[in-house]
Design a protein around this nucleic acid. Sequence first.
DNA 1: GTCTATAGTCTGATAGAC
DNA 2: GTCTATCAGACTATAGAC
Lengths: 205, 205
Amino acid sequence: MSEEEAPRLTRIQQKNRDLILDGALDVFSTHGFRGATIDQIAEASGLSKPNVLYYFASKDDIYRTLLTALLDVWLAPMRGLDPRGEPMAEILTYVRAKLDLSRDYPRESRLFANEVLQGAPHLQPILGGQLRDMVDETVGIIGGWIGEGRLAPVDPHHLIFSIWALTQHYADFEVQVRAVLGEDHDPYAEAELFLNNLYQRMLAV
Amino acid sequence: MSEEEAPRLTRIQQKNRDLILDGALDVFSTHGFRGATIDQIAEASGLSKPNVLYYFASKDDIYRTLLTALLDVWLAPMRGLDPRGEPMAEILTYVRAKLDLSRDYPRESRLFANEVLQGAPHLQPILGGQLRDMVDETVGIIGGWIGEGRLAPVDPHHLIFSIWALTQHYADFEVQVRAVLGEDHDPYAEAELFLNNLYQRMLAV
DNA sequence: GTCTATAGTCTGATAGAC
DNA sequence: GTCTATCAGACTATAGAC
């Protein structure tokens, strides 16, 4: 029942921490951990450099705080998958939820992409632990549906990878998507239709 | 007919330039442009730091040389798409070629991913120019096939994005793929089967 | 809590001996 | 062509005034 891990913050403390984390999300998601500087974070958050380091012990501390907060949001949609639901609807809901994350939290998507791309130095244990466990469970659910003949027989692991790859692509490669499509497109609206169509064709028995 | 742009290199010059580019590919693809240091490149290539800068004018020079060489390899498969071929076979061949690139040149894939993820500061004009033109042409070919009823009606732009996302995912997120799958899997062999299945189901009329 | 000033380190790039 | 030595600037982090 101790509260030692969650010290109460004054309003101004909470506000400044939020400012820093928001600015840091901009900077880290664009340049990766090593490419980001505290100077940039200070400017992006509107505080002075020493003040940033008054609220966080180090650059690494800011980065870890962001990654930790990110993981909860990032993995939530997979937890929402219901083994007792209608298989096709459950998958399409998951795809939709992941695409919404890309549209509404593109910086978080790029932060995660940068981290994994650079070898996941901060996240490695979680990938092989918590994440792998979650995926194994989901693979079991999907494999069950396939065994009952309620979904077309596809490799569940790679089905999950495909959902991650296809949805996160629109946030992570946003510059490329927009450059190729030009001005007269709404990438996420089109992607929603495309992905719905794709998974219905792929998974229908 | 001038040769001023392509000075002949001695054997040792060519060898050292190659050593540097190979080491730099390791470093840039792992840390991105800003996160990479010339010290790391020197160590990775087995040369001293001043010697690296004897062969290349600057860090930026090395990076641009890598990106330029990369683009040719990277866009080659799309050029191989034949309008007079059998549509499904042409698409599956393209998918296969892109997946082979991810397997055989994962560092190049991650270099490109880092560059685009970080806003494509060096590649921006190419994305909206040369790349967009190539994609427009391919979209025309695929759209023609669809109009003739030889492929299922899907959005050609997003079909191309899906191929990029799904194939490059295995190189760019390799750490995550391996962590989730564990030891007893061959990601690329499985991916080949999965993607073949996916695009056949999706595009069959 | 916020600032200026700065310590100490790292980084890109150059000078000059061999 | 390759090395040691080094400069100028940028970087993380801290000290100490207010």
